[in-house]
Design a protein around this nucleic acid. Structure first.
Lengths: 225, 225
DNA sequence: CGGAAATCATGACATAAATCATATTAAATC
DNA sequence: GATTTAATATGATTTATGTCATGATTTCCG
């Protein structure tokens, strides 16, 4: 099994602030797990026994709302940690995690994270900064949700996905999502998501080929109202 | 000047996890400040030189959106810390803080917070937990915003305010907000907020007398759709 | 105290977006 | 490869909510 010490994914997150010894322990304890598209990594309300570090692939964090609809809170890619928050606050998860494509995760037992949090100042400060950053971005999302139109949110979602997950050789977004997934991120009905993407296509802001979406006019998307 | 050691407000937040010595230092450095209703405690994009601990009164954290509207992210009452996040992540504030009534804050210089964060594990772990909790609640808010009706959000806002800030002798909510403030929390137009509160009144879910609002039928409010 | 300004209240209307309905196309399964 | 199932597409209609307009109150302040 590969070691955390050399893992690129690890270098992208707070685990990078661990001491050599701590990382060695993590590496010795961790188990690598594979999930297929659609697999549930963990469900809402579960108590986790550790955190998952995304080695490759992308997954979504979702929450079921009272009216039975699923809302996607965040997409998580290489280097991101799933379940960190639940482990820190020692609560059950408030979100579930679902694989969006085939994905490889390393599961790190709780103790390997919590103990260093209590002992290693630089690690715990790093985690804290990450939480602060996440909180800020959650607040920004909240305000976008409250004050921007569905069209704007869709445009921003496309821009965000391109920025964070990049494009393939053809120029199409690397992350492939169904229209339903887009609706769930944007917070709208699936039909509306489809309609808006069709409209963007007509206006030559994007081009599509099945689920592949390519941003053709970034500035235009930014101008959407 | 009063001392932090005995302050009730302090006991409600992470500062309670500080050592006796740390608290003594904080107490020695802190300055107490008074603000009147409407005063801006800090603005969006400022760099803070410390955090503010709410001793008495209530303030709102708001953010200006692209379209020029103000959105209220959170109300902060006794014991809560303002600016904690900006100080931790060493970034400019993303929100501004405005007093909703006459308010007394203790300003604690940055170093008094950041140094203990690097040295006192139990304090930093407490702060971390708080951030994790805030993050969770921001995510919940996001989903409410995405999937609930304006009426539901208004009902929940009233319930939340009653729960967190309580009621006075008459039974009316302790926190007095304008209809515009309600609109800014709920994420709607001021007219809509007014209309919905009028409707709640007609349906005997609440009673009002000027800005005083009393919840008359909690269960009914919970059932609003 | 009295006038100005802000806040609250409501009606009329416009509009974004949800919902319902029904094809069409693509993907999965036998 | 045929058949079922799921995803995409688009039209028609409804509904919630925003916007504009106008008065009535309340609050503020000289």
């Amino acid at each position: 099994m590969s070691k955390c010490e050399q893992c690129i994914a690890r270098q992208l997150n707070s685990l990078n602030a661990m001491t050599t010894e701590e990382i060695r322990n993590v590496s010795a304890c961790k188990t690598t797990r594979f999930y297929k598209k659609g697999d549930v990594i963990f469900g809402e309300g579960e108590s986790l026994h550790g955190v998952y570090c995304v080695r490759s692939g992308v997954c979504k964090l979702t929450k079921l709302s009272a009216n039975g609809k699923e809302h996607t809170v965040k997409l998580m890619g290489t280097g991101e940690l799933l379940g960190q928050r639940s482990v820190i606050s020692d609560e059950r998860t408030n979100l579930s995690a679902v694989a969006l494509n085939d994905i490889e995760l390393c599961f790190v037992p709780k103790d390997q994270i919590v103990n260093p949090l209590h002992e290693n100042q630089s690690f715990s400060f790093d985690v804290m900064k990450q939480l602060a950053k996440d909180l800020r971005s959650a607040e920004d999302d909240l305000i976008n949700m409250a004050q921007k139109s569905v069209k704007q949110r869709m445009a921003e979602t496309l821009i965000h996905i391109e920025k964070v997950f990049g494009v393939g050789e053809s120029g199409a977004l690397n992350v492939i999502l169904s229209r339903e997934d887009y609706a769930s991120i944007v917070g709208t009905a699936t039909e509306s998501a489809i309609r808006i993407l069709s409209q963007f296509k007509k206006e030559n802001l994007i081009s599509t080929s099945g689920k592949q979406i390519t941003i053709e006019d970034l500035e235009g998307l930014k101008r959407v109202e």
